[in-house]
Design a protein around this nucleic acid. Structure first.
Length: 510
DNA sequence: TACGGAAGTC
DNA sequence: GACTTCCGTA
């Protein structure tokens, strides 16, 4: 930001999303030394005095209307010291956000755009918490049912260039956040699967709120960093808080660095959250918060697995953590939830070229969409993803349901076309499968597993086996191996419920 | 009004 | 990398 150009000094504490202080520092604009347009838009949206210029659209979460395009452009131009700025140019910049999926256009509505907060919040505010005590000010985008869950830490009222407040956004979270946003070629990792629509977010928040209604209150009162808790799946039972798998650490006094957001967006930067085997090598090293807590690690891995499954992410997104096994996954949501919680990830906006490409490709390579014939989930299918007949039936039913769910009215055909998921399937198969990452990517069967020695070389490699695709081979082994079956039956499976010891054992076994 | 390519700037 | 500027197209 050039000096003297700023017109929006600092967001007021009272309005709009309360992004952390550093979010408004130009340096915090990921990948840029200048304020980014979306930042600026948020700022305007947040300020009462610009309500006549730009405002949140009622009824649609994250949607805003530019009421006075020229004025917005003028403000933007002023901010950027570009007196020649006009709406045409500004909108061009906005259109660049389509591809980044930070923003998309609300079709049919003039000057109306919609934020994809998943894209904004997660990479930039990875440790923001959504707390039951949260407050969403007036100007925040309408969140029909659970606005009170959406909370950003309050802003400081002092200089925008002041440092991050300890305890608000700790160095670690900031670092992580910046690592996130500056991580290696994120574009490459931004598969279309990884995007969550704001609707997802909303649904998730709704989910949270409904859960909070029952057991709420526990999370927010804990003295901990303002982690972001993207509301998704919980694993009831182990942790006292039913709302989130990460909400409360079982270890007293530990907020839990591993309170990692599990969201479609998590996978945006899978490697960022990869935990190095040694805390010393951890990305969180610089933080005093790092703890190598096996419980949390298990929890984290578990959730990762859930995430991988539920969002059909590539298991590549799974952290490599030699020796660590993931406990049996019970990502299956509560029945009611699983029926309500339908995920529709936003596809990337299909550009002209892409549109053509997609269309031409559709015949040969069907895209996953609820309306289409059953297609393999867009996840690297691992041996573990073989389902037993029961789960197959289930997922078939689910698929049917998906196709019956019909289309969300507000979605355009184009969006619908690209809709990736109608609902995340619970991962029954993972429930018994070790997600170990010992000698490197046992999950990575699809790609290069062929060159790798299989995990159980003891099993006689039959010729037919050899001819079999690795997936099938592993499946067979999985199904046939009595030992494995036994383990499955017992539910031992490396995860024996003995906590850290189990982990240790598992690691040792591995 | 909106989209997106292309080239240029910082 | 994130725009800015220009422009052809729908």
């Amino acid at each position: 930001m050039k000096a003297g150009c700023s017109i929006v000094e600092k967001p007021e504490g009272g309005g709009g999303y309360q992004f952390p202080d550093w979010a408004y520092k130009t340096e915090s604009s990921p990948g840029s030394r200048q304020i980014q347009l979306w930042h600026f838009i948020l700022e305007l949206l947040q300020k009462e005095e610009f309500r006549h210029v730009i405002a949140w659209q009622q009824g649609e979460y994250g949607e805003f209307v530019i009421k006075d395009p020229d004025e917005v452009a003028r403000l933007w131009g002023r901010r950027k010291c570009k007196p020649q700025m006009n709406y045409d140019k500004l909108s061009r910049a906005l259109r660049y956000y389509y591809n980044k999926r930070i923003l998309h256009k609300t079709k049919g509505k003039r000057f109306t755009y919609k934020f994809n907060f998943n894209k904004l919040v997660t990479p930039n505010y990875p440790f923001i918490n959504i707390r039951s005590s949260g407050v969403v000010p007036q100007s925040a985008p309408p969140v029909p049912t659970a606005s009170s869950r959406f909370h950003f830490p309050p802003l400081d009222t002092h200089s925008p260039t002041s440092d991050v407040q300890p305890g608000r956004f700790s160095a670690s979270s900031l670092t992580a956040g910046q690592e996130l946003s500056n991580g290696t070629d994120r574009k490459a990792e931004l598969s279309e699967l990884e995007d969550g629509s704001t609707a997802d977010w909303r649904r998730g928040v709704d989910l949270m709120s409904s859960r909070n209604a029952v057991g709420g209150g526990g999370i927010g009162h804990q003295k901990r960093k303002p982690d972001i808790m993207l509301p998704l799946f919980s694993r009831p039972g182990i942790y006292p808080d039913p709302h989130s798998p990460f909400a409360v650490s079982p270890i007293p006094g530990r907020g839990g660095v591993l309170n990692v957001p599990i969201s479609p967006a998590l996978s945006l930067t899978p490697t960022i959250f990869s935990y190095s085997p040694s805390p010393g090598l951890s990305p969180f090293t610089s933080s005093s918060c790092f703890s190598f807590n096996p419980e949390e690690m298990k929890h984290y891995l578990h959730s990762q697995a859930c995430s991988v499954f539920n969002y059909h992410l590539s298991p590549r997104t799974f952290p490599r953590y030699p020796g660590l096994m993931v406990p049996p996954l019970q990502c299956q949501m509560h029945p009611e939830e699983s029926t309500q919680f339908s995920i529709k990830l936003q596809p990337p906006p299909v550009g002209r070229k892409n549109r053509e490409r997609v269309e031409s490709r559709e015949e040969s390579a069907p895209v996953t969409a609820p309306t289409m014939a059953p297609v393999p989930p867009r996840i690297k299918v691992e041996p573990t993803s073989e389902k037993d007949p029961e789960s197959l039936r289930q997922s078939a039913q689910e698929k049917e349901e998906h196709s019956q769910e019909g289309t969300v009215p507000s979605r355009t055909i184009e969006e619908e076309k690209g809709t990736i998921f109608a609902r995340p399937e619970a991962p029954p198969i993972w429930s018994s499968v070790p997600i170990s990452t010992p000698s490197e990517e046992p999950l990575e069967v699809t790609e290069d597993s062929e060159d790798r020695p299989s995990k159980e070389p003891s099993a006689p490699e039959k010729k037919e086996d050899a001819l079999m695709p690795p997936k099938l081979r592993l499946k067979r082994r999985w199904n046939d191996d009595p030992e494995a079956r036994e383990l499955r039956k017992d539910g031992k499976f490396l995860w024996n419920g003995s906590g850290p010891q189990g982990l240790a054992t598992a690691a040792a076994d591995a």
